[in-house]
Amino acid sequence: MSTKGKVHLPVGQEALEVKGWFGAHKYLVLRRISQAFFLFLFLMGPWFGIWWVKGNLAGSMTFNFLPLNDPLILGQMMAAGHWPETTALIGGLIVLVVYALIGGRVYCSWVCPINPVTDGAHWLHDKLNLQKGWQPKRSARYWILATVFLVSALTGTIAWEVVNPVTMVHRGLVFGMGFVWAMVAAVFVFDLIVARRGWCGHVCPVGAFYSLVGTKSLLRISAVKRDDCDDCMDCYAVCPENQVISPALKGKADVTPLILSPDCTNCGRCIDVCAMDVFRFTHRFDARVEAPSDAVSNPESPNRNAA
């Protein structure tokens, strides 16, 4: 099939035919399991009386000895003039180091319970063939992050927790959803109608914070077989931060195939939908590019010409 013909296939269709359903959705399935797992850990106590973990994503104690605390919340506390206890600081440092090593925005795609909501909105947006909508600059989330710290300092409160949908969902599942449904629905509608992938990609200060944390993280996705790319564009269609793909995928021979942008969420969807297996998980020191599997099959590859 020609490259032109593949562009018009439904997104992921070629991968479905080559890999089968699970192969074309492997990382999506694993992400949903991961998100459900972390959510269930915090609900085991209130729901079933099994207190392996006490607390929520904002702050918790695991097996009564391992503290884990959201470093963004601790930062707001300190901006508000409240110095956290030593245990909380240790918990925040543990989380900070983990996300700094594996990739800050792994939180967004593998842990955050709002991610399935925004993914669902994007899926429906595509099914309904809606307009792209308002697209604020991606830098807006960093301005919002700065505003969160400023408001915390001015008010003496942990400002973001007043409207944080993640915290609301956790509390709602324990004490009753009530108004929480309205917040979840607002995020869904915002991504569906107002701004495609708007919440995670342009607004959420948590994602902005973790992108800064993971700037030099070890876990990366690499377009290791970029010379096999058939330009179907499926990876761009599914990537929540598709601006990160081109430097790695379309780079010349001397340009790294690693997706080094901290905006990458390491969701793995580009790996799922690529029938040519161009992408894979690796580490930031693995800059190898594999030779094309069939140099004759894709003579028009821009990377091959560049090489």
Rank of each mutant, 00 (worst) to 15 (best):
G120K: 07
R32S: 10
V255C: 07
T3V: 14
M78F: 03
R304I: 05
V184I: 15
N305Q: 14
V203C: 02
K225E: 08
R138I: 11
F48S: 02
V203H: 01
Y142I: 13
A36V: 04
V7C: 03
Q35A: 02
T282D: 13
G92Q: 06
G103K: 13
T118R: 00
R171N: 15
T265N: 01
N266W: 05
P262M: 08
A58F: 14
C274L: 00
H125G: 08
A295S: 13
T86R: 06
V203K: 03
I221P: 09
K26T: 01
M183Q: 08
G133W: 11
T118M: 08
G81Y: 11
I90Y: 02
I114T: 13
R226N: 06
E85S: 12
V238N: 00
Y107H: 15
C204P: 13
D126H: 11
F190K: 11
T157C: 06
L16G: 05
G214E: 01
P262G: 03
M44T: 12
A185I: 11
A15W: 01
K19R: 05
G133C: 02
V203N: 01
K6L: 15
R197V: 01
L89C: 08
A195P: 10
V255G: 02
W143S: 10
T282F: 07
G59M: 00
L173Y: 09
A208P: 12
A185Q: 07
R220Y: 13
A295L: 15
W47E: 05
F285K: 07
C229I: 00
Y142K: 08
P84N: 08
D191L: 01
V184L: 06
G103S: 11
G103Y: 14
S222W: 03
P292H: 07
G59Q: 13
P205N: 05
P165W: 13
A291L: 13
S152A: 14
T3S: 15
V166A: 07
R138N: 09
M177N: 02
R196E: 00
W51R: 09
L74G: 13
T167I: 03
R280L: 13
T265L: 02
T265F: 02
G81Q: 04
L57A: 12
V273D: 00
W123Q: 03
A15P: 12
G59P: 02
P302C: 03
L260G: 07
E14G: 04
G133K: 00
P257L: 04
C204D: 04
I94H: 05
V187W: 08
D228W: 04
T62E: 05
R288F: 11
Y107W: 15
T3W: 13
I193M: 13
K137E: 11
N298L: 02
K6E: 12
S222H: 05
V224A: 11
N115E: 14
P10A: 00
L154C: 15
F149K: 11
R197P: 04
V244Q: 03
P257M: 11
L150G: 05
R138G: 15
C200Q: 10
N64C: 09
W181C: 08
R105W: 02
D294K: 05
W134G: 01
I102F: 11
N69T: 13
K132M: 08
N64A: 15
S217C: 14
G5Q: 12
G20P: 03
D126Y: 07
V111Q: 12
A195V: 08
C267S: 01
G81F: 14
G55K: 07
